[in-house]
């Protein structure tokens, strides 16, 4: 099952029908005055239903470009993204995005609850149902006490919670997160990481989480896809075999966590030095038992 079908460079693929989200041979070239810039060369991987996958890579490795292509915000130069077997051409209804720039992604003229409600209102969800969804979502992120505040009256971490609540209330099948915690302090970050794990478990949503933080990717993910430096391909696709119950102190002090961390770190260092995988491999690190 974890084999590399049809020899395309890339991460793990699933047999047809099993994948919720498929990225196939994705390539993105920007045309600029100074010539073409190949941000993403050739990416292939699958996300199964209900997975929580982290994408990690050196800075400038086209992570954001990749995420925007998946979200339907950018069109790929070649290759395709399939959601439930259907090709993504624009932002699909079944996806929600949490942006890194929470301060700019929340509308400052709307109160917290209105920000969460707006996409639902626009999708024509009936009022009573909307109200329930907004309340539940704010409750899920621990913000049920500030619905009438404006986003800019809240701290950075709380603002990002609002953005997560907005995504959750939208009831997506796939939740895309673009370095969502890059701009919050370490303490808040730990809280938000646990929040994401909880939301993921509770709602059974499929999550693709982009980060440049190796520890974060291992702590959060069930699987980590390591990207090469630009032009980007999949460097490695590894399964995180840590216990499902994660705890900031316990999990991070497991020897296995350290091993995985070493491994991912080494891969990223290789990627930074320009090493490119001959053929992308899907690895199970030998579990020392």
């Amino acid at each position: 099952m974890l084999s590399n079908s049809n020899g395309i460079t890339g991460g793990r693929t699933l047999p047809e029908g099993e994948a919720l989200l498929s990225v196939r041979g994705l390539k993105k070239v920007y045309h600029t005055d100074g010539g073409d810039i190949e941000a993403v060369r050739d990416l292939t991987f699958d996300l199964g239903r209900g997975e929580l996958v982290c994408l990690v890579g050196p800075s400038g490795s086209g992570k954001t470009t990749l995420l925007k292509c998946i979200a339907g915000l950018l069109s790929a130069t070649s290759g395709e993204v399939l959601l439930d077997g259907e090709k993504v051409t624009g932002p699909p209804k079944k996806m929600a995005v949490v942006f890194q720039e929470y301060g700019r992604s929340l509308f400052p003229w709307l109160r917290v609850a209105d920000n969460v409600e707006l996409p639902l209102k626009n999708a024509g969800v009936p009022k009573a149902e909307r109200k329930k969804l907004v309340e539940d979502a704010l409750d899920a992120v621990g913000l049920s006490h500030v619905p009438r505040s404006y986003p800019w009256q809240l701290s950075g971490g709380m603002q990002q919670r609002v953005a997560i609540a907005r995504a959750v209330a939208y009831q997506p099948e796939v939740l895309l997160m673009d370095e969502p915690f890059a701009a919050v302090d370490a303490q808040t970050r730990a809280d938000l990481e646990d929040l994401i794990r909880n939301v993921w478990k509770k709602l059974g949503v499929t999550v693709l989480f982009v980060t440049h933080d190796i520890d974060e990717s291992i702590y959060l993910g069930e699987r980590v896809i390591i990207l090469s430096s630009s032009p980007t391909v999949v460097q490695e696709d590894i399964v995180i075999d840590l216990p499902a119950e994660r705890d900031q102190l316990e999990t991070r002090s497991l020897p296995r966590f350290t091993e995985l961390r070493h491994h991912v770190y080494a891969e990223i260092q290789k990627a930074k030095q320009g090493h490119r995988p001959e053929e992308a491999k899907t690895t199970f690190l030998t579990n020392p038992k």
């Binding site: 915000l73 932002p91 995005v97 700019r104 907005r166």
Partner: peptide, 10 residues
């Protein structure tokens, strides 16, 4: 970013 937010949330 506001434009992308609007687009991705339909």
């Amino acid at each position: 970013v506001q434009n992308e937010t609007s687009r991705s949330y339909g």
